[in-house]
């Protein structure tokens, strides 16, 4: 599934939903992608992992999408984890906007899943 240039795969693992983003996430695809991910998480799920290890680009629209997801899951008492390897441009953007105050950022998927 693609919106604009961003690719999205959603996978349900036991109590956790894993959303994997690829490509470039900007204003052309952020809104719709956020909606899809939010709807893919059932209320029964413990939490959501957004895997951005293969995402090549993110801008403030993508960041806004992540903050939106964090709010939505927080209101349902569900966990949100973000995977963004250190040193990559995506991680750099998340650091600048201090996203770690909204949800933990992990270097890889296994680490993220381990915390839920």
């Amino acid at each position: 599934m693609t919106e604009g240039l961003v690719g999205l795969e959603i996978e349900e693992r036991e109590d956790v939903v894993v959303a994997t983003l690829t490509g470039e996430l900007d204003i052309a695809g952020a809104g719709a992608t956020g909606e899809r991910i939010g709807e893919a998480v059932p209320t029964s799920a413990q939490g959501l992992v957004v895997d951005m290890s293969r995402l090549e680009f993110i801008d403030s629209s993508g960041v806004a999408m992540l903050f939106g997801l964090a709010r939505r899951l927080g209101s349902r008492r569900q966990e949100l984890r973000v995977v963004a390897p250190g040193g990559e441009p995506v991680k750099r953007v998340l650091e600048i906007v201090e996203f770690n105050r909204a949800a933990p950022i992990h270097d890889d998927l296994a680490a993220a899943l381990g915390t839920i």
Partner: peptide
Amino acid sequence: HEIAEITTACGEAATNAI
């Protein structure tokens, strides 16, 4: 890294323009 970061910054300016 420089290319990615400058591109991101420029994208923010362009997003605002759009």
